[in-house]
Design a protein around this nucleic acid. Structure first.
Length: 713
DNA sequence: GTGTCGTGTCATCAT
DNA sequence: TGATGATGACACGAC
């Protein structure tokens, strides 16, 4: 952790894990190929440098590239990036596209951010600025007893409750004391919090003084790698404002407790003066004089309250990004998987060598998803079908955020003794128990993104009452609800009434395993009731599993279709390349033929006489660049005499190809392309080939080898 | 009437 | 050993 931090998204399902491993492997291979310039079909020109890459990779994670390469099928595509994109900012993004790891430091973080905005790296905001930061705060849950304040109050400053680091062990050991007590020590220490770094960068860019850095947050952010960040953020005051005024809260409890996601998409409503829709608001100080708002998703929306040149420039950059087409990215803006390939384990490495120098100006950085920029997230536009991968990621995001944002103590469950003790062991989304989602499950941005609106939570009117914490583990399947349709629930309800269940039938399938067992313990059931309960539960689980399975199948089919298209385009490109090589070879042979004829005319020799001459020249030690190891083998003493094995062993020799070379087949291509370079080849031998073959080659316009894949054209 | 599609259910296997 | 998830197969209803 000398200069970076990393965070990975945990995987909760075997499918997701396997996919991530596969994706990671594929990406590693692609990255290797990119470094070797293998199969690269795209050249990206940035400033004075050029980067070779695979268009599919870049298009997969960048709206800009998707729009650019989508309409270009020609080979050798060269994309010159806008001036706003710098090498400094683009190179980490390119690495991010292949490795899902973003390496950035204080020096280049803003450039990366700008480039990401311009290029539409819609994953970065979620992967880094929205996802990583809360993850860093994970261990701050240890101080849940400390101060928690509403994030939706008018004054958006709440003291952060982080402190697991050694530093905070000293300063934050006082429960309830909050971070304010430790602020003096924190301010002068090194900062490694990326948000704080960004804020400082912006503040410094404004060239204004900031005598006090207030780092405040509204909640304890989750973090899996928090030491350095906590050290940093614990030394600053970071305000992560997450609740927009139009963000309805699931319950009054949540409203008061400040439960929201840092990347909540806009659900509609007007934007008030704060422009805080549902993004992450990083407030450095109260008296900041400038605000820079950046959308959390691919399309930034800038609201600048000052005319600071730096902020204006930043805004212009982001405005340009706004103009970039988001493209028909499958997940759509704002709902992209965290990693470029969605299922990849998203690791974001944060360079942490920055030092907090409280000399910057006051600045407010709002990371706000604009409503206009998130059309797909509006309720009236449900958007495309979410893949299981996206669902997994969103669930993780939701789990990571909401579980921390909604403290368990806020709404204790009736089943609390068992549920809480086994909370971490279960695989269901028990974290949702801490939420009061009775108002609308769509209030969770991640789940709403997945169509969780369709989930109807149990409406307990009898039996066991879980008034404020209904079980919604059925959200595990997203929109799949065990009783999502009245037609399905009626038979259960009727049957439940028949067997006189002491609790709602809905809970049978909605409860987690431990809760369910506890429920059975609490309510002694008859054999009939027990059978019914188990049957309901089994079928419900299986129904959900079947839905997931089918979704996965569809996703696989879609992925395969994309793969086929990709391979098709790749094949077309290779065919064109081969055709050009053939044309080039023909031209070369024609030139050689002409030269040979000229030599013959001048010397009065016939072409056949040149063959022994060439042979003798070679045997006499006439310089040939790459004489093959078996050059002196008697096999070369053939009537044709001229060998092309000087290029490489794998090159087909003339003796091994007694039949006349047909330029319309792969053989000439093999000869031509196997030769490292013309100057490395024996010109006399080439001339011999030319003499032997030119008659048949020069008139051939070339023909393609029949494809082994008839459908791939 | 028939084919297709979506969905639920069962059986089976793996974890 | 039981619970759970994944998945193939089948049935059924809607269109």
């Amino acid at each position: 952790m000398a200069d970076g931090m990393s965070s990975e998204i945990p995987r909760s399902s075997s499918f997701s894990f396997q996919s991530s491993v596969h994706s990671a492997h594929v990406l590693r291979c692609l990255d290797e190929q990119r470094r070797c310039d293998a199969l690269c079909d795209l050249t990206v020109a940035v400033e004075s440098r050029s980067f070779r890459a695979h268009r599919a990779v870049l298009a997969a994670c960048s709206d800009y590239f998707q729009s650019r390469v989508g309409s270009h099928a020609s080979e050798g595509l060269i994309i010159t990036l806008p001036e706003e994109v710098t090498v400094k900012g683009f190179e980490p993004l390119l690495q991010f596209a292949y490795t899902a790891k973003l390496l950035f430091t204080k020096e280049n973080i803003l450039e990366i951010h700008n480039c990401a905005a311009v290029l539409g790296f819609h994953n970065l905001d979620k992967a880094c600025f929205e996802f990583l930061i809360p993850k860093f705060f994970d261990k701050s849950r240890g101080l849940q007893g400390t101060q928690r304040k509403s994030c939706c109050r008018q004054k958006k400053q709440v003291d952060i409750s982080v402190g697991v680091t050694e530093d905070d062990d000293h300063h934050g050991a006082q429960p309830g004391a909050g971070s304010e007590m430790a602020l003096p020590q924190r301010r002068s220490s090194e900062i490694q919090c990326p948000v704080a770094e960004m804020s400082l960068e912006i503040a410094e860019s404004h060239g204004q003084d900031c005598t006090e850095m207030d780092v405040q947050t509204d909640y304890a952010l989750p973090s899996s790698n928090s030491s350095a960040l906590q050290l940093a953020c614990g030394k600053d005051r970071l305000c992560l404002e997450n609740c927009g005024p139009q963000m309805p809260f699931p319950s009054p409890a949540l409203s008061s407790e400040g439960c929201a996601s840092p990347c909540l998409p806009c659900t509609g409503g007007d934007h008030d003066d704060s422009s805080v829709c549902c993004g992450t608001r990083t407030e450095i100080s109260d008296d900041c004089v400038s605000e820079v708002a950046v959308t959390a998703d691919c399309l930034p929306c800038v609201t600048t309250s000052s005319a600071s040149p730096a902020s204006m420039a930043f805004r212009e950059t982001l405005d340009m990004a706004c103009s970039q087409p988001c493209g028909p990215a499958p997940p759509g803006p704002g709902c992209c998987p965290v990693a470029p390939f969605g299922d990849l384990d998203s690791s974001v490495v944060v360079g942490g060598d920055a030092t907090l120098e409280p000399t910057g100006s006051q600045g407010v950085v709002d990371i706000i998803p604009s409503e206009a920029a998130l059309p797909d997230l509006t309720p009236d536009k449900p958007g495309p079908e979410r893949s299981s991968v996206e669902r997994e990621v969103a669930e993780h995001l939701a789990k990571g955020f909401w579980s921390d944002l909604c403290p368990p103590q806020a709404e204790p469950l009736i089943l609390e003794p068992v549920a809480q003790s086994t909370l971490d062991k279960t695989t269901d989304f028990h974290w949702l128990k801490h939420l009061d989602l009775t108002s609308s499950t769509g209030d969770c941005p991640f789940l709403r993104d997945l169509g969780a609106d369709e989930v109807q939570l149990p409406n307990n009117e009898q039996g066991l009452q879980l008034e404020k914490s209904p079980q919604v583990s059925s959200l595990n399947s997203g929109e799949d609800s065990d009783f999502d349709t009245e037609g399905d629930s009626e038979p259960y309800t009727e049957r439940a009434q028949e067997v006189q269940l002491p609790f709602p039938a809905e809970e049978i399938s909605s409860l987690s395993r431990n809760d369910f067992q506890h429920l059975l313990k609490v309510h002694p059931l008859t054999r009939e009731q027990l059978d019914f309960v188990h049957d309901i539960r089994r079928r419900s689980k299986n129904r959900v599993a079947a839905q997931r399975c089918r979704k996965r199948k569809l996703d696989c089919i879609q992925n395969l279709e994309c793969e086929i298209n990709k391979l098709n385009s790749e094949k077309q490109k290779l065919l064109q390349e081969r055709n050009q090589l053939r044309i080039s070879m023909k031209e070369t042979l024609q030139k050689l033929s002409g030269l040979c004829q000229k030599v013959c005319n001048e010397t009065g020799l016939v072409p056949e006489q040149l063959q022994p001459l060439a042979k003798q020249s070679a045997l006499d030690g006439l310089p040939t660049a790459t004489a093959g190891p078996h050059r002196d083998s008697p096999e070369q003493d053939t009537p044709t005499g001229f060998s092309v094995d000087f290029c490489a062993d794998e090159v087909i020799t003339a003796t091994q190809q007694p039949a006349p070379l047909d330029c319309g087949t792969d053989r000439p291509v093999s000869v031509a392309t196997s030769c490292p370079s013309p100057e490395l080849c024996d010109p006399i031998s080439i001339m011999g080939i030319c003499l032997d073959r030119s008659a048949t080659c020069v008139t051939d316009t070339g023909s393609f080898t029949p494809s082994p894949f008839p459908n791939f054209k």
